[in-house]
Write a protein that binds this DNA or RNA. Structure first.
Lengths: 224, 224
DNA sequence: ACAAAAGTGTTGAGAGTACACCCATGC
DNA sequence: GCATGGGTGTACTCTCAACACTTTTGT
């Protein structure tokens, strides 16, 4: 095998979370050049011998302390000038995490880590704005056409909470009766038998998703 | 910048073509170890400083002599043991090319290059069977839900030829009237004004697609 | 009893799907 | 004139989308 000089390889993970009724993403403040002081998507080098999915999970764990999380490969960006230090190809992922017991830990190369509302992003390093935009589009697509929205919620949730999640991501009001009918027909949820009380009004049934349920794209065939 | 040891980086291109009423893919016979003598997807190392899309186009051009072709990034495979020579991450693409004036040229590392019917593939090297399967799935999806099928045909074609292309890829008969109605409503084709005569029966109108037409996924929203 | 949120069915409109015959050309 | 493939319209069905009231709890 000839020893070609190859580009460096990184993974970057766009992490989405619903916090305070807004869609937010986790950014870290870079502590090293280039772009020192700018915000960036969490990520890092793929170690030799390490599976790329595992690398993404590792980076996600290092930055957020969460594990066993929904992670999906997004796209691979490989323009030679995207990193001023040298040609660096990055495999990007996007993650959906629920807003619960997350301890954000700034890594060694980061001076800070913080959530940012998606519509009010600061200037970000590298081509990360493009990557975030791409991930956001994919998220909207996923919620528009699949029942994957529960991945943004804790293990147990009410149907109204789920609908609210969809409304935040899609940016529009949904019809309660139609929403519930479609979702229950999709057969991905099951009742827990428990109710969430304590708030105002009638207590709501708590649901969870059963693991065997695979939220499929519900697309319309173009040709019969 | 610290100098991490990173995995090698390659691109691989799954090339689809309709030949002799079958869906076929181009494979090259490896002339070097490992897997010498086995068939593999065309591909090669990404050069330092080279854009990955450009690398895929270059590999495709070197193997088939075609340029200006429909190419789409598919997925990035990065299991550390997928190449016995060492950790090699590959960004895969899939290409649709029409069956016309293609001169297949075996590259330096290949002793041979040949088309293979997709349902009758030989043993292939590395994890290329998985990659081809993934690409095949994506192709079926694309034709099922979009009007991108014309990318498998020459610049000008008849509606029957297009319908046949869909039928071959999807593996089922389609209704002629519904097919034509949907396709014309999709507004991606235009009449050339020419007819294809010479065959038996009534001459058929030739169509081409207009470049501004972007074949969109026609999906059904899950929630109203 | 009143405020607040949960939960539940029906109907009209529009799209999807199935289906059969006439038309233009070559031999 | 006949064989071959090209081209066209309609009716039924089913899914989609809009819409309002009753129920349960806490105060």
């Amino acid at each position: 095998m000839t020893d070609y000089k190859t580009p460096a390889l990184t993974v970057d993970v766009v992490i989405f979370c619903l916090r305070e009724q807004r869609l937010q993403t986790l950014l870290i403040k870079r502590g090293v050049e280039p772009y020192s002081g700018k915000w960036a998507i969490p990520g890092g080098y793929v170690r030799y011998g390490e599976d790329i999915d595992a690398a993404a999970l590792r980076e996600l764990g290092e930055e957020t302390g969460v594990h066993n999380i929904y992670l999906e490969q997004l796209y691979t960006f490989g323009a030679p000038d995207r990193d001023p230090r040298g040609h660096t190809v990055t495999v990007t992922y996007f993650a959906l995490i629920p807003d619960e017991n997350i301890t954000i830990e700034a890594g060694t190369d980061a001076t800070d880590a913080a959530w940012h509302v998606l519509d009010e992003l600061p200037d970000v390093a590298f081509d990360h704005k493009e990557i975030i935009g791409y991930a956001h589009e994919r998220l909207r697509y996923k919620l528009e056409y699949t029942s994957a929205g529960f991945k943004l919620l804790p293990r147990e949730f009410t149907l109204t909470e789920l609908q609210t999640a969809y409304e935040i991501v899609l940016g529009e009001k949904l019809d309660k009766r139609n929403f519930r009918r479609r979702l229950l027909e999709a057969d991905v949820l099951e009742k827990t038998g428990q109710y969430r009380s304590g708030g105002e009004g009638r207590p709501a049934m708590l649901y969870r998703y059963h693991a065997k349920a695979d939220p499929q794209v519900k697309a319309r065939r173009l040709y019969p």
